[in-house]
Amino acid sequence: MTINPSKSRGHSARVARARVGYLLEVPALLALGAIAIYPLLFNLWLSTRNDVLINPAATRGVGLGNYVTLIQSATFWHDLGRTLFFMVVSVTLEFLVGLGLALVVHREFKARGLVRASILIPWAIPTAVSALLWKMFFDLRSGFVDFALHSLHLPGSQLVWFNSPTLAWVPIIMSDMWKNTPFIALLLLAGLQTIPQELYESARIDGAGGFQAFWAITLPSLRPSIMVALIFRTLSALLVFDAVYVMTGGGPGRATEVVAYYNWSKFMVSLNFGYGATIAVSITLIALVLAGLYVRVLRAQGGLSA
């Protein structure tokens, strides 16, 4: 038997094409390596060192020493508790409001495109800017919140919101909701649009009411979108920093101090890069655990085919 020359030529052409393919991937891989993988590994390495910039002579490896310090730090656990509180409250509220918004803009009405576009505006504004805006809104002398409460004879006027350990959370959560609810609404709207209209029609023929249809068709069909939205929001709520930094600086006292703020202060106030890296790695691990839990729930409910 003779080797078919055209076949061998085809083979080498395929190899050449594959080589070009790999070559074209190189820049992307390098970029990914430089901005994601290298920092992650570097950070992991840094977390095993005593590296305080103001004391360069004491730089040395300490194994898991920083992690022991972290586990024994009451501040860290308090801050983590506050972060989880913020996460649960803000994500729940954002989800409920976002679902409502998605259902509304899913309907046919005049100027729907305009409304859809405009609910996205807050999402396009940088977090630090929206936090600054909300800080001003809640200012006793110049903010509209006090003015509105006063004019409507509602309780809460003449309050210095940021001077109360509990009320200081209200502006923080409000600004977070204002910015992130549109994101959830957008994801859920995309999910709503994939639900076949026939399902609703046959439900109606079977005599289901609006609420029943929502419960039996809309929600189950939306589950994958809901999960994606919740994972994204939960993880970014875990990392909440800008709003706290801009609005309260973790205050009053340390009533609104969250883990990302603790992390920042170890890096930039204490210049303790080793311990700072340890906190960062720990937050990453917590995020991974949370993401893993979500994925499990999603798989268990058949929302994710894996």
Binding site: P39, F42, N43, A260, W264, M268, F273, A280, V281
Partner: peptide, 10 residues
């Protein structure tokens, strides 16, 4: 991750 990766990037 956060600040240290910025430091490296910087």
């Amino acid at each position: 991750m956060s600040v240290s990766s910025y430091r490296t990037l910087g």
